[in-house]
Amino acid sequence: MNTTRPLPRIGIVQGDACGIGPELLSKLLEHEEIHERAQLLVISDKRVFDAGSAVSEIKANIKVISAAADIRFSPGHPQLLDTRCLDPQHITPGEVSIEAGRAVLKTFGLALDLAEAGTLDGICFMPFNKGAMHMAGIGTEDELTWAKQRLGITSRASEFNVIKGMWNARVTSHIPLKEVAGRLSIPHIVEAILLADQTLKKAGYANPRIAVAALNPHAGDGGAIGREEIDIIQPAVIEAQQHQVNVTGPFPSDTLYLKVRDGHYDCALSMYHDQGQIAIKLLGFDQGVSVLGGLPIPIATPAHGTAFDIVGTNRANVQPALNALRIVSAMASDQPHRFA
């Protein structure tokens, strides 16, 4: 890492206040190495932050400011932008709350606005609760789509799941399996491959090795059990190769993830939701990181949820959040490097 350049400016968003997010904030700040990777701004209601610190029993050394105009980044001197949007007295830890949902949209929205204004180079958010966000009126399917709309992005953006150097992206996601084949097209897959290539390059992979999954078992067995590989996926891979991308496939999905696990590839591209999720969850993805790629700034979050069952017990493991912060710091740096 080149320490003569300024460290990336990263916003840490509090997450759903009814979950373990607030506890994680002070745990993150306690890790000294993170201050050598990024200059940090925590975006949270101070009362929520303090409630989290009470659970973690960590007194963080952080300067509280109340307006964006007061933001002064400085390595080793994190600031807390107090959003005054949620009184913890109004929520019950471990229960879905519309007020907590509203606070999520407020704090995450503020972070996106600061990024758009050029104040932040990257965002790391603590777990959201989808139910709470929907109650609070997010109005879109998820935070990725919401962020795209807020930033006015119409090109492809995608969630990447990352664990121990393995990346996975999906061509289709939350749709009926029956509709998957109809949504696969050469341009669509090429776009997804190119986005994977760009995103991993930002994450410090000089020449990311991307493996594309087949749709049908045994990759269609030469067309005997499905033609999508021959008609769509293979041509898309060839087209992407012409863009100088190190991509191969389509591979049968029952052996592809073994090869990814064993380090033969950096990133898998799955055709449907469960294809990738089955493998990476089995490989321990609950301890992994989700990266939102395709936005003007990198965004990352721990893959686990709000963990309502352990809120307030100080048992929350900070490692996935720490990894999310490391990845986003590496990606936001003007010298791309692998985070580990």
Binding site: P252, S253, D254, L258, R261, Q275, I278, A279
Partner: peptide, 9 residues
């Protein structure tokens, strides 16, 4: 693949 993929892993 729903079964073969995880079983092979």
């Amino acid at each position: 693949d729903q079964g073969h993929a995880p079983m092979k892993l």
